[in-house]
Write a protein that binds this DNA or RNA. Structure first.
Lengths: 337, 337
DNA sequence: AGTGAGACTGGAAGCGCTTCCAGCGATGTC
DNA sequence: GACATCGCTGGAAGCGCTTCCAGTCTCACT
């Protein structure tokens, strides 16, 4: 297996020469531009086939000022966080949508300071045509960079302290309401919630959904404990709630991980689920099916999130003015409530 | 929030003019090339600062014939498969290694036919400087494309039917041996294995490790059932093994998912783990800690895999001749064996 | 003073493509 | 038959950078 000689790719000039036409004519054929005679087209197409010509991406990018690449930035402090299945789903959605275009995906895990500055540089040096950002703090320097770069940008989820012009988000508020209403419909009244971090929009929205549903049903929000979307956080919160409100009869957890943690604590405390305590989670990213008992939860389609973000970005790049999207969530009934 | 005017980035020409030097001189300053007087350097650097100049990536790429981008291709039939935490870890490793360079990561989920042809095109149009491929079948058209493109390429894992020139792999054979030896050391003798798909190198290597350890200890490989690395596959295989060899006293599962499936079936069948049956898995990607009982397993560092692949690729691009790497695996003792 | 070696410099030629534009001949119209 | 119209063409000017090369200038050394 000798190292194959990297045969130099033929250039447009060579193709044109072989076809006996000018470079401009050849270019027109390739770009399916008008004003090309049948004869010219045929000649060029034959030359292309014979020589195995393929236009050089970089050269084209320089001429058109379009790289054909979009970035997906995940700007988190902890690189491990990327291991969350959430991101995998986003990427699958993004990739699927991108497959219908000529664009490619550049993935930026910008957790460290160095990572961020690399990303910044990428944007400022016009290395990509647009960028998708997974919700980061509104005061993240990245948001400024992105705005100053004047690059098309869409957000996945909303940062807390500013409303991006273009974003795609799940209907967290509606989903939380749905979950709570379901518990109410079950006849539960002492319904508590374990929230996500209140420093995030998701956390707040899901909490508000809970409160609104309670209040609209004429109930008082029975108790609230702040979690952090993790299983450990859910367990801790559950313990303190069980302490302070031992008679609770239902719980809305802001994530499935949270719910899983709560579930464990409940079982350990001898409560049976759903008989004594009904539990509803949020996310439905696989884990909900594997808890014991399987979790009734609010489903959000993360792939759809990725897909819509991509479509929106592609639209922006094409010069359209898309409008932000909120994706529906729905209740999935399993055994825990 | 008015849409910010995308202020045109200044060009090198403008910088040079402002600094009162030629474009070549300015270029030299930027690239820290020799033969630049102190005065020139200062003038250029001031101009750069004042104008906020940043070199245009595309133009530079065209001139140097280097894009500054490497691809990571995941070529699987099922896009869902990407959700496996394995890939997340690879990506984290790759990103970390890339952070020490000026390269960026292009992620290609090439599952569909269209996806593959997009990837092919990307390579042939010289859209990237090199590529990392996660083990795919040796007869995957991609491998040919890659070779013909003459592009630096490194593999993660080894395809079954050909040995790539440059690859990084975990020591699957050694790990499986370690696991089996541990079971033997526990005094077990009727040790069975649930393999991965025998159509993959990983599957075969882990199986061979099991056999070798058994034989070297003077034992006969007691029984083998083929799994597919999934939990369901593991459960099915376990059932059939329990049927055919009810007196088995230990099992080496080729993955933690497999082991988890087996575990469930064992418990349901009334066997206690590890008292009646000892179980060892493989991978240690988080799940092993969360089974009940927690799984003794063979740890492989997937982040290291990504990191080493990246380093190797960067070396190749720089013109070095690195040699392939096999990463050590180690046994992690928990409760199941 | 004369020499060669260096250090520096800017002009110019790329990299491979797109796109504007002037020019061409072939039509159509009165 | 004169004129505008139209489809097609190739030359040339970019896109923004790197890099080769032929020069100039300085300086140490004979």
């Amino acid at each position: 297996m000798a190292a194959q000689r990297p045969r130099r790719q033929p250039t447009l000039d060579e193709v044109a020469e072989r076809a006996g036409v000018s470079r401009s004519a050849a270019s027109r054929v390739i770009n399916k531009a008008p004003h090309v005679s049948r004869a010219t087209r045929d000649a060029v197409e034959r030359a292309i086939k014979e020589m195995g010509y393929l236009p050089n991406r970089t050269a084209r990018a320089l001429a058109t000022q379009q790289t054909g690449i979009v970035a997906l930035a995940v700007s988190h402090d902890d690189p491990e966080l990327f291991a969350d299945p959430f991101f995998a789903q986003v990427i699958v959605g993004v990739s699927a949508a991108l497959e219908e275009t000529d664009l490619h995906l550049l993935l930026c895990l910008a957790s460290s300071v160095r990572g961020r500055s690399r990303l910044t540089n990428l944007l400022q040096t016009r290395g990509v045509d647009g960028i998708m950002l997974m919700a980061l703090h509104g005061d993240d320097p990245l948001t400024h960079i992105v705005r100053r770069a004047g690059l098309p940008a869409v957000y996945g989820g909303r940062p807390l302290n500013f409303e991006p012009q273009w974003y795609v988000d799940s209907d967290n508020l509606g989903g939380a309401r749905l979950a709570t209403e379901h518990l109410i419909g079950l006849g539960r009244t002492r319904i508590v919630t374990i929230t996500g971090p209140m420093s995030t929009d998701v956390g707040r929205a899901r909490h508000r959904g809970y409160r609104e549903a309670m209040i609209m049903a004429g109930l008082v929000p029975y108790a609230t404990a702040e979690g952090d979307f993790t299983e450990a956080g859910g367990a801790a919160a559950m313990k303190s709630l069980l302490d302070s409100h031992p008679d609770l009869d239902a719980i809305f957890a802001a994530s499935d991980d949270t719910a899983a943690g709560a579930l464990r604590v409940l079982i350990d405390a001898g409560r049976s689920v759903p008989a004594d305590v009904a539990v509803v989670g949020f996310d439905d990213l696989g884990k909900a099916e594997r808890t014991d008992p399987p979790l009734t939860t609010v489903h959000q389609s993360v792939q759809a999130l990725g897909r819509e973000m991509t479509r929106m970005l592609v639209g922006l790049i094409a010069g359209h003015e898309p409008s932000s999207v909120i994706l529906p969530t729905k209740l999935v009934l399993r055994d825990s409530a």
